[in-house]
Amino acid sequence: MGEVRPAMVLFEGGDRNLAWQPRRDLLASDRFAREFVLEVAEDGRSQLRFGDDVLGQAPTPGVPFEALYRVGNGAAGNVGAEAIAHLVQPLGLPAGGILRVRNPLPAAGGLEPEGLEAVRQYAPQAFRRQERAVTEADYAEVAQRHPEVQKAAATFRWTGSWYTVFVSVDRKGGRPVDAAFERELLGHLERFRMAGYDLEIDGPRFVPVDLALEVCVAAGHFRSGVKAALLEAFSTRELPTGPAFFHPDRFSFGDPLYLSQVYRQALAVPGVASVEVRRFRRFGKTPARELEEGVLATGRLEVIRLDNDPSRPEFGRLELTMKGGL
């Protein structure tokens, strides 16, 4: 519950362009930040705390605020499926256009307010969380606190006059580490980094896989159907049963690709009687006994990739030879 934020925003003078956002504290807020802290007393009453033009901007005296917020009713709000059947219509609004009200799925996530005893028990643990980055492992750990980072690795390099910390980031969903994301992540890391160290954000070093399978199709199955199922199973897509084999979130820094994983995935496809891996190596590289040793190893900053895009073979290739079947 330590990351809970109030669902609230303030508009200075009712102006929607002058929005103030809630924060846990104002220790990282600069003097221009329109931010505030919502403090709840033991009796349930709340008050707002603003900055002092040093840590957070101070509001203009006499200017009113318009508050837009959402409240809940704790665990009682976790109603079951099909429990909601009525809508309370505000006075003065037309009631037309609504044919039915229902909730096909049960509600979840409602929690009771944290009591003082829970605060006494868990508050000391909050101070054990590292809030500064000193070592390479520290920089990787705080980078992974960003909600879009699947995994990170940091490397210190002497650049001639000072040290630069290169943070390599594997972004969730295979999204690119573009200029906009680099700026966002640099802002996230700024409060943790050591003075005198520069920061640079890098993407992964991808290892394109060159994979060739010879498949024997079981009797009574069409080769074209089994091939389509194999292409889907070894794709990069999110399938109804979960992420496909080469989905970007299945592999990250340093994760090897084992030959046994390929066999298991291929044999799990309906209609596959047997399979033989004919090529298993880095794309465009001389084989380094990957097929004989049963593993395609990666370095600490490398990530396995096989997109099987004919227009981008440098991001991996899958070749299927189908035999038997119909």
Rank of each mutant, 00 (worst) to 15 (best):
G2Y: 14
E3P: 11
M8T: 01
M8W: 07
G13P: 05
D15M: 13
W20A: 04
Q21D: 14
R23K: 09
R24D: 15
A28Y: 04
D30I: 06
F32D: 15
F32M: 12
F36N: 04
F36D: 15
V40Q: 05
V40G: 12
E42W: 00
E42H: 01
D43N: 06
D43H: 07
L48W: 07
L48V: 13
G51C: 12
G51H: 04
L55S: 15
A58W: 00
P59D: 09
P59K: 09
G62C: 12
V63C: 06
V63I: 10
P64A: 15
A67S: 15
L68V: 04
Y69R: 10
G74H: 11
G80N: 10
I84R: 10
V88R: 07
Q89P: 05
P90W: 15
L91K: 09
G92R: 03
P94W: 01
A95D: 00
G97P: 12
L99A: 06
V101Q: 02
G109V: 06
G115Y: 02
A118R: 05
V119R: 10
R120W: 08
Q121V: 00
A123D: 02
P124A: 01
Q125W: 04
A126V: 05
R128T: 11
R129W: 04
Q130N: 03
E131G: 01
E131H: 03
R132N: 11
A137G: 04
H146L: 14
H146V: 06
Q150R: 15
Q150C: 11
Q150G: 15
A154I: 14
F156R: 04
R157C: 11
W158T: 05
T164M: 03
T164V: 00
T164Q: 07
V165M: 11
V165H: 08
V169T: 01
V177P: 08
D178K: 08
A180P: 12
A180C: 02
F181Q: 09
E182T: 13
E182W: 02
R183Q: 14
L186W: 11
L186K: 15
G187E: 15
L189E: 08
R191I: 04
D198M: 07
D198Q: 12
I201F: 12
P204D: 00
P204L: 05
P208Y: 10
P208F: 03
V209R: 10
V209A: 09
A212D: 03
L213C: 00
L213T: 07
E214Q: 13
C216V: 15
F222R: 15
R223M: 02
S224P: 02
G225S: 13
K227T: 12
L230Q: 12
F234M: 09
L239E: 12
L239N: 00
T241C: 12
T241H: 02
F246L: 00
F246S: 05
F246V: 06
D249V: 13
R250A: 03
F251E: 08
F253D: 13
G254V: 08
G254Y: 04
S260C: 13
S260L: 14
R264S: 14
Q265F: 13
L267P: 04
A268F: 13
V269Q: 08
G271K: 09
V275S: 00
R282M: 10
F283A: 09
K285A: 15
T286N: 14
R289A: 06
R289D: 07
E292Q: 02
L296P: 11
L296S: 07
A297N: 06
T298K: 05
G299M: 11
R300Y: 11
I304A: 01
R305T: 00
R305F: 01
L306H: 05
N308F: 04
S311D: 05
L318Y: 00
K323G: 03
L326D: 14
